[in-house]
Design a protein around this nucleic acid. Sequence first.
DNA 1: GGTCGGCGTTGAAATGTTTCATCGGCGTGT
DNA 2: ACACGCCGATGAAACATTTCAACGCCGACC
Lengths: 344, 344
Amino acid sequence: MANGRSPSVKDVAASAGVSLGTVSNVMNRPEVVSPATRERVERAMAELGFVRNESARQLRAGTSRTLAYVMLDGSNPFFHDVAQGIELAAEDADLSLFICNSNGRADREAVHLDRLMQQRVQGVLITPVDPEAPHLAEIGRRGIPIVIVDRVGAGGASCSVAVDDVLGGRIAVEHLAEQGHTRVAVVGGPESIGQVRERVEGARQIWAELGLPPGDLTYLPTSALTVAEGRSAGERLAGIPARRRPTAAFCANDLLALGLLQQGIGAGLRVPEDLAIVGFDDIEFAAAAAVPLTSVRQPRQELGRSAAQLVLDEATNPEHRHQQLSFVPELVARASTVARPRPH
Amino acid sequence: MANGRSPSVKDVAASAGVSLGTVSNVMNRPEVVSPATRERVERAMAELGFVRNESARQLRAGTSRTLAYVMLDGSNPFFHDVAQGIELAAEDADLSLFICNSNGRADREAVHLDRLMQQRVQGVLITPVDPEAPHLAEIGRRGIPIVIVDRVGAGGASCSVAVDDVLGGRIAVEHLAEQGHTRVAVVGGPESIGQVRERVEGARQIWAELGLPPGDLTYLPTSALTVAEGRSAGERLAGIPARRRPTAAFCANDLLALGLLQQGIGAGLRVPEDLAIVGFDDIEFAAAAAVPLTSVRQPRQELGRSAAQLVLDEATNPEHRHQQLSFVPELVARASTVARPRPH
DNA sequence: GGTCGGCGTTGAAATGTTTCATCGGCGTGT
DNA sequence: ACACGCCGATGAAACATTTCAACGCCGACC
């Protein structure tokens, strides 16, 4: 039965007593083949357990049926939500999605991109380590559609989908100021990450515009956007003398915020009374924290979905124009900044 | 410059003044070609920006350079940790990893598997909706190595890697009993998920063995393993009259536990004094919860890594024997069950 | 000086699918 | 009765790579 290799179109053709062109027609344009033979062919396929060889199809067609998403940090649920959005769009277009993870390392990213080029994927979506990196431009030069996700690309040379991170930083800190905080910590890093730079920048902007003294906005740098780094930042925060210590913190993402929250509560702080916290991204775990986290929401799935649509447009529409989509972030206020009436 | 299609081996051969067989040799067995010509070919490749066409390679070679992981629930970080483990092993073997997500739906799973067969992937790792489903056996029958992850396959027909879920349920509830709890809730569902069935089963087993009355082990069914369902279970728990209400809960996974924890704290319960909670999986967010969560740890990455090794063995080793790997889960006790001395 | 062996290179075959020009047969209209 | 047109099926070419038997050349050995 199993003679080792799987049956090919030729085998099906022989078994059904037709030419192999006809078998191909049954698969690709069933309407041109008469119902009788079509059924005969289909039966033969089922009998032999025929499975179309995608490499051969792709070789001849010159184009694959896959998109790829290279994400920046697989341990951050935010990127999985983005990926989910992409997947939905890919599904609609009947494409497969290849998910890679650079883990923030440029060399891994380059390896992935190289492989994807070899696979001749239809398009690449990427949240890059560095949007200016030469291997990104390389992809575009090869004629493979590429869309930068959650960053804006270099000089409009490609499409991109992002939220306005500066604005996000502004609304976060503005919210804290509205709650009456006059000493605020900004937690985030490393500064090599563009998103971090811009969110911090937004915080500084609005702080200045509100006329608050720059010295009262404390920057606490971190070496990564992780829960552990959030905890560590919390310890540093606790080390500041009480009278100068910030009463609120804006974290560059939710993982940091969760770590900070955990450390604070563990140290006996009341949140938000002793320390108010704002995160960024609004991942699902933000709302699920024991003190639900106020966060700057990014439309995570929508980000992915529209990025996928852009890449598909570039792949199929000859008069495609590159565009930079920018979504507006939105503050979701929860208990970590807004004290609720306490049950007394 | 860009004449539309990317350069092929033939173009490189012409440019370097050698035959196309030689170019292939430069790529696949550099040692047989003389250093001089090799360098000439390599220069030509770089000049033309040659990128090997993977479909053609694959068509001729008959085998691809990719593994695939079909995960059960993309919104559960547990599976991403498993995927990470697989990715590490794949990287070592110089393979790409295709990540798919069935989202718990058998039809999506079947679609993914079909596509993967078309791609002639080297092997499939899967956490199936139903390990008995016919489309799983189909893969194996085609000669594609397949490994069941986090479940045991049907009748030893394929390799599998899992933890002993029954044992996990036992140690969780045993731990609660040791803490002096005599009324315990078991939270989880739907029962169509095998992991849930076994964890609950383990809980019941140990409860009986400890000689505790079956009526004091309350089963709270949920419709999914999500944070939201955990909250909802918390509300139902709160609705039980205080004198019969369980003082501890064992949740079938950490997402449920986090939801339950959040709901409990929001309702003013002290954890663990009023309600102790044990989760399952020990995802990173478990330790990061405001009250760090006691959980039954699965070796997440290790699960993925060894599954990948099994699939590779099946793919390359002719005398491969199917095996069912079973890891031992381990209780990680944290503050959600063990009260720490309170700062007074 | 002729033969042998080995190294480096060659060219053709093979992989499985799609596409497209072509062909055969049949019905219709004149 | 003949030509025309149409529908359905055919078979060969093309896609880019790998593999392998064969070949030419050179030095060494007898």
